[in-house]
Design a protein around this nucleic acid. Sequence first.
DNA 1: AAGCTCTGCTTTTTT
DNA 2: AGCAGAGCTT
Length: 651
Amino acid sequence: MEFNDQQLAAIEHDGSHVLVLAGAGTGKTMVIVGRTAHLIRSGVEPGRILLLTFTRRAAREMTARLRLEVGPASDLLIAGTFHHFCLRTMRSMPKSFGTQDSTVIDRDDQIQVMRLVRSLHRKKGEKFPRASEIVRVASYARNTNIPASEYLERFPRWEDDVNERVLHCISGYGERKTASNYIDFDDILFIFASRLHRDEGLRTKLAGLYDHILVDEMQDTNPLQMLILDGLRDPARLFCVGDDAQSIYAFRGADFRNVHSFTEMVPGSSVLKLERNYRSHQEILDLANWLLSESPLEYGRILEARRGKGFKPFLIDFDSDFDEARWIVEDIVERNDRGARLSEHMIIARTAFSTRATEAALIEKKIPYRYVGGTQLFHAAHVKDVVSLIRCVASMMDEIAWMRYLTIWPGIGDRTAALMIDGIREKRGENPAVIFSWLRSSLKRSSNLVDGLEAVASHWNDPPEAMQRACSCLEEVLETRYAGWEGRKRDLELLVRLCSRHRTLGGFLETYALDPMTSSIVERLENDDCVTLITAHSAKGTEARVCYLLKAEPGQYPHFRSLGDEDAEEEERRVLYVAMTRAMDELILTRSLRRIRFPWSLGLGDGPQAFPGSGYFLRDIPPGLVKHDLDGSLGSGEGDDQIIISWRDRE
DNA sequence: AAGCTCTGCTTTTTT
DNA sequence: AGCAGAGCTT
């Protein structure tokens, strides 16, 4: 690898803590990899280097590059997401953290627990925030390290008495969680951070494990994560890399003061900059620069392409998202026929939801693809059913798993299941065999559900076998429950295959609680060259020669859900900015303007009137910045109240 | 009283 | 596609 002077300065920086401000495409990952290699070469033990990223994707990418760069030493590095690292540490010393036997629960399970609690606090027939909304509030408050009560006081969302009961829900949720031995994603960070700062002995011990802590995507760190870095630094040195123009996780509590005020928050630190873009041609950056220049905020970031000039971005309108999807897929096929690899193409979407048409078109044309951020394998109903059986055996206190598993069986509903769960809880500490036989005698009619439990328990240390048995035990009931069973059955076969990578089912559960891979990624194990379909959020940190920006239309950028909230809209601008700057050679923005309909809209009505002229970033693209299929049809002499009409509908 | 079925509503982004 | 709630069946 060759580096420019700025990159080299960062890589070889030998002072105290440092923040590297790095614009899109300036070689951020390369610098982290380069510095790691440099540190190892200068004698730092790889095991004393901690690499933290924000997303699993970034973590995977980084470890892959490190393997190429530093060889087998890369296996000794401690690398992963914040959540991964914290959980790993807690698991290795459970007594210090008080997290023995805990089950990690994902977002869905959180909502499930909250739903139970919510029902106790909601008055009959009353309009009350949904469980998912309450979970969001609770999660945001924890990640920004403020009490939920204070958060609701500062940003009141509901009537006073509703707010109050929402707070009861949140504390009830916490109690329920403790009773079931659950820890959620936020707990992973929270428990780690709180012990780290409360227990001096532990802090000294943990901080003593590392000499260097390298953090990617610093602009996405939240206060909790900053506290973790605070507790671990000194003597360990921080090397944080970030770009405030790419901050797109405020909804998760990310606080870009961690970048803006870095030098104040971390005494003795300095700031370095990477300013030269090596990824894209200038025309692509011109469009991205223009987008930021339209913002009321001063990003002070003008990207300059070292690669010089190339193609202008395309902006193409379609009649429907079906046409849009078909065109993209045909375009990829054509390029592929001319010799381009499929993997050079990335289709970027604002939401996972908006990729349906494209996915269908890819499947129809039999183009292999992987869908990053897509419907996660472990979120599919039938998969959760089977996994619930495994979870029941893993932790008898796992009430969500029991509720799910028991109600799969005909004749057992919420009520019976709840009674059984109470019975199981009373037998806390008993041998599983005792619980199983009690269940068998209590459930005369569906006592064969115990067969599955026993089969899994007796093959606990042979994951593929246990999973196989779990699946065959449930197959009959699930087949009647779900339409299209053949397709779903394939997912279960996938589960068995995934199990073979683990020595125990416990390891299996924990791995996929944190990293619920998509089925299309699993399929990719057999399919190397494929198109990438990805959300803009997951796409950060990646690049591709040809990028299609799916549905670059009103209602997506900014997303209609954020309209009216200035900060949220501004974050949407950065999302679009991130998406655009992924492209190396060609950027193709597509949209379908005619059928914009949001039936559930927030008082916006449906049909084209839903979007008056404002609130769409690409409305006033200066002529010449993109090649539009009807140049100048947008933003020319049309008043603010005008709607956009596809050129196809014009006279 | 518990379980089941049908209908209408909903869908940002991630660990 | 899945969930909440209403209404129907066992």
